[in-house]
């Protein structure tokens, strides 16, 4: 009998180990399955947005209200950011251009930098913070307080009323905000150039736009539409799929900003590559 005892112990040890291994395997499988489910959820969410966008009962009133909230109410923040962007860019680059005797290129350089890259990306990142977090928090709190359920129960499709209107408004308003930020950026640049110099407003603008081509503006505007769509989608998705507790509202708002900003940068890299391929 004693001979068999060690065998029994080894068997017990092996069983515990295999249990731990199987627990780890289950946990990993669950993680992988959750990840795949999340991806499927995202695609279903986008599909339902597309379907509801073309539905008969489009919520025009709510869409215009969202355009006002996203576009008009972001103007003060975008005004300050845009102006400072041009001002700082000019103050930083002017001494280098003076050293190279190329100070006359300053307006064109600033205009191209702003229009091609800095204007769209910085405006989009600011909007990811302001608009994305707002959408995440608003829809998240609506979910927590059962307002989305109430909408569904009263025969109103919440995707159509809440999500489609916000995503479309963000897609349309962000390119307009980008153009507005570009214009103010060039104005800020003129103000910056006049701190240590004396350039007339008309001369500065005519010099700036003499270097800007249509193909500088068009890709920037097109990618701004994608920035808007990404910010709206992420903000709405995170808010709409928030958990039930109040903590999840903060999580939704936070992840809307983080993921929105990250996706803006990724979309920008792709857009720059495509534009570069088209130019060459």
């Amino acid at each position: 009998m004693e001979k068999f005892n060690p065998v029994i112990k080894v068997k017990g040890f092996a069983t515990k180990q295999s249990v731990r291994l199987s627990e780890k395997t289950i946990a990993k499988t669950e993680k992988a399955s959750n990840f795949l489910t999340d991806i499927a959820d995202v695609f279903l969410f986008i599909a339902s947005i597309i379907r509801e966008t073309f539905s008969r009962d489009f919520e025009f009133k709510e869409f215009f209200r969202q355009c006002f909230q996203i576009g008009y109410k972001s103007l003060p923040l975008i005004s300050i950011t845009g102006t400072i962007m041009g001002l700082v860019l000019t103050i930083q680059s002017r001494p280098v251009l003076v050293d190279f005797g190329a100070v006359t290129l300053l307006p064109g350089m600033v205009a191209i930098s702003l229009i091609r890259e800095m204007g769209p990306v910085i405006t989009a990142l600011i909007c990811a913070g302001k608009i994305g977090s707002g959408m995440g928090a608003e829809l998240g709190s609506m979910k927590v307080t059962e307002q989305i359920d109430a909408m569904e129960v009263s025969s109103t499709n919440p995707i159509r009323f809440l999500v489609v209107t916000r995503v479309l408004a963000a897609t349309l308003m962000i390119p307009l905000l980008v153009l507005y930020a570009d214009a103010l950026g060039i104005f800020g640049s003129w103000a910056g150039a006049n701190i240590k110099g004396d350039v007339s407003f008309v001369l500065f603008f005519s010099q700036a736009f003499s270097h800007v081509k249509f193909m500088d503006l068009l890709p920037a505007v097109i990618k701004s539409f994608f920035f808007g769509a990404v910010i709206g989608l992420v903000g709405c998705y995170k808010g709409y799929n928030a958990g039930r507790g109040t903590e999840s509202v903060g999580v939704a708002a936070n992840s809307a900003v983080v993921l929105g900003s990250l996706l803006v940068i990724i979309v920008d890299v792709i857009a720059v590559q495509i534009t570069d391929m088209l130019r060459s």
């Binding site: 609506m142 307080t145 307002q147 359920d149 109430a150 009263s154």
Partner: peptide
């Protein structure tokens, strides 16, 4: 389901009034 819901009233525990 949407048509059926038109015939049902649901009073939520929290009231669920639209804040905005």
């Amino acid at each position: 389901l949407g048509e059926l819901r038109k015939k049902i009233g649901f009073l939520f525990q929290s009231g669920a009034l639209y804040d905005s």
